[in-house]
Amino acid sequence: MTYLKRSPWIIHYDASSCNGCDIEVLACLTPMYDVERFGIVNTGNPKHADIFVVTGSINEQNREVVKNIYEQMPDPKVVVAVGICAASGGVFRECYNVSGGIDKIIPVDVYVPGCAARPESIIDGIVKSLSILEEKRTKMNSPAAKKDTQSGGIQ
Protein backbone atom coordinates (compact mmCIF):
# COMPACT_ATOMS: atom_id res chain seq x y z
CA MET A 1 0.00 0.00 0.00
CA THR A 2 1.21 3.45 -0.83
CA TYR A 3 -0.10 6.85 0.02
CA LEU A 4 -1.59 7.10 -3.42
CA LYS A 5 -3.65 4.01 -3.00
CA ARG A 6 -4.70 5.01 0.46
CA SER A 7 -5.93 8.42 -0.37
CA PRO A 8 -6.59 9.12 -4.04
CA TRP A 9 -7.98 12.47 -5.05
CA ILE A 10 -10.53 12.61 -7.78
CA ILE A 11 -11.63 15.29 -10.18
CA HIS A 12 -15.08 15.05 -11.66
CA TYR A 13 -16.05 16.60 -14.96
CA ASP A 14 -19.52 16.54 -16.45
CA ALA A 15 -19.12 16.12 -20.20
CA SER A 16 -22.55 16.11 -21.83
CA SER A 17 -24.27 14.13 -19.12
CA CYS A 18 -27.93 14.46 -18.20
CA ASN A 19 -26.97 15.04 -14.55
CA GLY A 20 -28.17 11.64 -13.42
CA CYS A 21 -24.66 10.23 -13.08
CA ASP A 22 -23.26 13.50 -11.77
CA ILE A 23 -25.53 13.59 -8.82
CA GLU A 24 -24.77 9.94 -8.15
CA VAL A 25 -21.05 10.74 -8.16
CA LEU A 26 -21.78 13.51 -5.67
CA ALA A 27 -23.99 11.17 -3.67
CA CYS A 28 -20.95 8.92 -3.18
CA LEU A 29 -19.37 11.70 -1.14
CA THR A 30 -22.33 12.22 1.16
CA PRO A 31 -23.09 10.42 4.42
CA MET A 32 -24.95 7.40 3.01
CA TYR A 33 -21.96 6.20 0.94
CA ASP A 34 -19.25 8.49 2.23
CA VAL A 35 -16.15 7.65 0.21
CA GLU A 36 -14.28 10.29 2.15
CA ARG A 37 -13.83 7.75 4.90
CA PHE A 38 -11.45 5.97 2.50
CA GLY A 39 -9.53 9.18 2.06
CA ILE A 40 -11.03 9.84 -1.36
CA VAL A 41 -11.38 13.57 -1.81
CA ASN A 42 -13.17 15.37 -4.60
CA THR A 43 -11.01 18.22 -5.76
CA GLY A 44 -11.73 20.98 -8.24
CA ASN A 45 -8.17 21.28 -9.44
CA PRO A 46 -6.85 18.84 -12.07
CA LYS A 47 -3.28 19.30 -10.84
CA HIS A 48 -4.25 17.83 -7.47
CA ALA A 49 -6.01 14.82 -8.86
CA ASP A 50 -5.08 11.17 -9.42
CA ILE A 51 -8.39 9.90 -10.77
CA PHE A 52 -10.39 11.58 -13.49
CA VAL A 53 -14.07 10.72 -13.22
CA VAL A 54 -15.99 11.66 -16.34
CA THR A 55 -19.74 11.41 -16.80
CA GLY A 56 -21.52 11.91 -20.10
CA SER A 57 -20.28 11.70 -23.62
CA ILE A 58 -17.97 13.80 -25.75
CA ASN A 59 -19.44 16.60 -27.82
CA GLU A 60 -17.93 19.32 -29.95
CA GLN A 61 -17.62 21.88 -27.25
CA ASN A 62 -16.26 19.83 -24.38
CA ARG A 63 -13.75 17.84 -26.45
CA GLU A 64 -10.96 20.30 -25.70
CA VAL A 65 -12.00 20.77 -22.07
CA VAL A 66 -11.77 17.04 -21.34
CA LYS A 67 -8.43 16.74 -23.10
CA ASN A 68 -7.13 19.78 -21.29
CA ILE A 69 -8.11 18.51 -17.84
CA TYR A 70 -6.55 15.13 -18.59
CA GLU A 71 -3.30 16.67 -19.73
CA GLN A 72 -3.06 18.86 -16.65
CA MET A 73 -3.24 15.89 -14.30
CA PRO A 74 0.10 14.60 -13.00
CA ASP A 75 1.28 11.06 -13.77
CA PRO A 76 0.32 8.40 -12.85
CA LYS A 77 -3.37 8.98 -13.52
CA VAL A 78 -6.39 6.88 -14.32
CA VAL A 79 -9.68 7.68 -16.00
CA VAL A 80 -13.00 6.28 -14.86
CA ALA A 81 -15.89 6.66 -17.33
CA VAL A 82 -19.11 6.68 -15.31
CA GLY A 83 -22.39 5.77 -16.94
CA ILE A 84 -23.28 4.37 -20.31
CA CYS A 85 -23.01 7.78 -22.01
CA ALA A 86 -19.37 8.03 -21.02
CA ALA A 87 -18.78 4.50 -22.29
CA SER A 88 -20.45 4.74 -25.69
CA GLY A 89 -22.80 7.72 -25.94
CA GLY A 90 -25.69 5.63 -24.64
CA VAL A 91 -29.19 6.66 -25.50
CA PHE A 92 -27.86 9.79 -27.19
CA ARG A 93 -25.26 8.17 -29.41
CA GLU A 94 -27.20 8.93 -32.58
CA CYS A 95 -27.52 12.63 -31.80
CA TYR A 96 -25.63 14.86 -34.21
CA ASN A 97 -23.74 16.65 -31.49
CA VAL A 98 -22.53 13.58 -29.62
CA SER A 99 -19.24 12.10 -30.77
CA GLY A 100 -19.36 8.99 -28.59
CA GLY A 101 -17.63 7.69 -25.49
CA ILE A 102 -14.83 9.37 -23.59
CA ASP A 103 -12.29 6.95 -25.03
CA LYS A 104 -12.51 8.74 -28.36
CA ILE A 105 -10.46 11.50 -26.75
CA ILE A 106 -8.54 10.11 -23.80
CA PRO A 107 -7.62 6.57 -22.71
CA VAL A 108 -10.15 5.10 -20.26
CA ASP A 109 -9.12 2.58 -17.62
CA VAL A 110 -12.43 1.63 -16.00
CA TYR A 111 -15.94 1.70 -17.42
CA VAL A 112 -18.79 1.90 -14.94
CA PRO A 113 -22.05 0.80 -16.57
CA GLY A 114 -25.52 2.00 -15.70
CA CYS A 115 -28.03 4.67 -16.61
CA ALA A 116 -27.75 6.26 -14.18
CA ALA A 117 -24.78 4.43 -12.63
CA ARG A 118 -25.52 3.55 -9.03
CA PRO A 119 -23.29 4.88 -6.25
CA GLU A 120 -22.29 1.32 -5.34
CA SER A 121 -21.00 0.65 -8.84
CA ILE A 122 -19.25 4.00 -9.00
CA ILE A 123 -17.41 3.20 -5.76
CA ASP A 124 -16.60 -0.23 -7.14
CA GLY A 125 -15.21 1.35 -10.30
CA ILE A 126 -13.07 3.76 -8.36
CA VAL A 127 -11.71 0.98 -6.16
CA LYS A 128 -10.85 -1.01 -9.30
CA SER A 129 -9.07 1.99 -10.72
CA LEU A 130 -6.91 2.17 -7.59
CA SER A 131 -5.09 -1.04 -8.44
CA ILE A 132 -4.57 0.19 -11.99
CA LEU A 133 -3.18 3.40 -10.55
CA GLU A 134 -0.85 1.36 -8.37
CA GLU A 135 0.31 -0.65 -11.37
CA LYS A 136 1.02 2.51 -13.32
CA ARG A 137 2.94 3.92 -10.40
CA THR A 138 5.11 0.84 -10.04
CA LYS A 139 5.80 0.88 -13.74
CA MET A 140 6.65 4.54 -13.66
CA ASN A 141 9.07 4.09 -10.77
CA SER A 142 10.75 0.97 -12.14
CA PRO A 143 14.47 1.41 -12.96
CA ALA A 144 13.82 0.89 -16.68
CA ALA A 145 11.20 3.62 -16.83
CA LYS A 146 13.37 5.97 -14.79
CA LYS A 147 16.26 5.50 -17.17
CA ASP A 148 13.94 6.30 -20.06
CA THR A 149 12.83 9.58 -18.62
CA GLN A 150 16.37 10.56 -17.72
CA SER A 151 17.70 10.03 -21.20
CA GLY A 152 14.65 11.69 -22.68
CA GLY A 153 14.92 14.70 -20.39
CA ILE A 154 16.33 18.12 -21.10
CA GLN A 155 20.05 17.96 -21.87
Binding site: A87, S88, E94, C95, Y96, G100, G101, D103, K104
Partner: peptide, 8 residues
Protein backbone atom coordinates in the same frame (compact mmCIF):
# COMPACT_ATOMS: atom_id res chain seq x y z
CA UNK B 1 -27.78 11.21 -37.23
CA UNK B 2 -24.64 9.36 -36.35
CA UNK B 3 -24.16 6.08 -38.17
CA UNK B 4 -24.02 2.64 -36.67
CA UNK B 5 -20.21 2.66 -36.53
CA UNK B 6 -18.30 1.59 -33.43
CA UNK B 7 -19.06 3.84 -30.50
CA UNK B 8 -15.89 2.95 -28.65
Amino acid sequence: FQGEGPCQ
